[in-house]
Design a protein around this nucleic acid. Sequence first.
DNA 1: AGGTTACGTAAGCGGTGACTTACGCAGATC
DNA 2: GATCTGCGTAAGTCACCGCTTACGTAACCT
Lengths: 89, 89
Amino acid sequence: MFKRLRAGARSVGEIAKGMDVSRPAVSQHLRVLKEARLVTDRAEGTRRLYAVDTTGLDEVRKWLDGFWDETLAAFKTAAEREAARERTR
Amino acid sequence: MFKRLRAGARSVGEIAKGMDVSRPAVSQHLRVLKEARLVTDRAEGTRRLYAVDTTGLDEVRKWLDGFWDETLAAFKTAAEREAARERTR
DNA sequence: AGGTTACGTAAGCGGTGACTTACGCAGATC
DNA sequence: GATCTGCGTAAGTCACCGCTTACGTAACCT
């Protein structure tokens, strides 16, 4: 779903076509993506175009960066402490 | 769970203590983390120490980097195409 | 106005995943 | 050898998630 939207704005029907799920299922997915600020929607006639939303994307990116920083930092200190413990044996 | 392991090697009981799930539940989680190469385990007497595995961590990191590259690239070209379409109006 | 298209939403259902309890087993301690 | 500790695993239960079907609605068309 998200990979399809990366290529540009798409209508619900276009997204659903070619996927092995029904159109309402796609709508429901788009709703949670919208709530997560990962997509935006705008009406165009009877159709409804969805596109990726950079705001939520940036949030995810920042969160992940922080996660990696914390993980690597914690792992580094843990490794150093482990090495120190090894040395005093 | 993973955040606890970041601080260093922990036994199953230590991890389970303070969490709102039972010890067997923690064991099951650790099993899937182990299969995903995200943790390693070594026996120490009757206890079993778990620690983060950098190999699986690197794989995740690489996959995420590729995902972000693809996403941003696709989004960029989509935005440019959108801008061009706007200009010819 | 009537019909068609494209969509969202409610209702209902099945499968799956995460948990708990119960049990078995290896290692330590005496 | 007996017991205790720490753990993994099997079995069973339950809530939740994602899907489909059915229906209602707004915008376009003639």
